[in-house]
Amino acid sequence: MSLLRVTGLTKRFGTNEVLRSIDLEVRQGERIAILGASGSGKSSLLRCLNFMELPTAGVIELDGQPLGRERRPGERIYRESELTQVRQRIGMVFQQFNLFPHMTAVGNVMEGLRTVRRMPKPAARIRAEAELKRVGLGDKADAYPAHLSGGQKQRVAIARALAMDPEMLLFDEPTSALDPELVGEVLGVIRNLADEGRTMLLVTHELGFAYHVATRVIFLADGTIHESGTPDEVLKNPRQERTRAFLASHKQYSL
C-alpha cells in the first residue's frame, strides 16, 4: 500500500507554473532521489508534499486519506490543524539547515517534542540526546549552532526531524550548502537511515549517492516528471535526451 499518493499536483506562483500535474506514488520503505536542473521544480515538489507550499491544484493522499477538502472543482482548502499534523508525520531537512540559533543543539532537537508534542522536559531531553547520539553528535548537545560546522549543523537538523518519529523524510538538497569535505558525514547519516528502511525523498545533485542509496530515481524538467525508473535505468541508461544532457552536465558528481 502506498504511504503517499499524489495526483495532478500543480503549483503556480502568479503566472509561473512550476509544477504541472505531477502524479507520484511513494510506498513504505522507498527511497526516491529527485534530480533536475535548477528551476525544474524539484524543491517546490518537495515543499508541496508537507504543505510548506500549498498546491494550486491536485490531491495528496497520506495513508489513503486525501488531505484537505474540495471547495470548488479542482480547488482544495486545508485546515491549519490538518497541515500541522501532516508536517509531524513528514519530516523535512533543508539545504540551509534552518537551525534555531538561540537554542543549543539539544534544544533544537527538543523543540518539536516540547512545543508541538507537549512532552515533559526531562523526557524530551532524553529523547533528543538519543537522536543526537544517532547522528554522531552525542558530545555536542549543549553547543550552539554558531559553534558547529556545516556538517554538524545538518546532522543536528536531521536529528531534529527524526525526534518527531516521522513516517517519511524529505531532504531538500541537504549537502548543497556544505564544504566538500563535510558532505561525506551528512551522506553517511542519510545512508544509515536508508539502511534502517526509512521512507525518504531526496532532492540532490550527488548522483553517486543517489545511485547507491535510492530505490527509484525521478528526473524533473519544466515541472513534470520527465523520466522515472530504477537508478540503473535513469542514471546508467537514460531514455530521454534531456536526462542524458543533464547527466552529462553533472560529470563532476560522477557515479
Binding site: N50, M52, E80, S81, T84, Q85, R87, Q88, G91, M92, F94, Q96, F97, N98, L99, F100, E111, G112, T115, V116, A157, R160, A161, M164
Partner: peptide, 18 residues
C-alpha cells in the same frame, strides 16, 4: 528574521503562533 526560521519551525508541525 530569515524565512528559513519559519520553515524550520513549521516543518516540525508548529502552528503560526507557536
Amino acid at each position: 528574521i530569515d524565512r528559513g526560521q519559519w520553515d524550520g519551525a513549521r516543518a516540525l508541525g508548529m502552528r503560526w503562533a507557536q
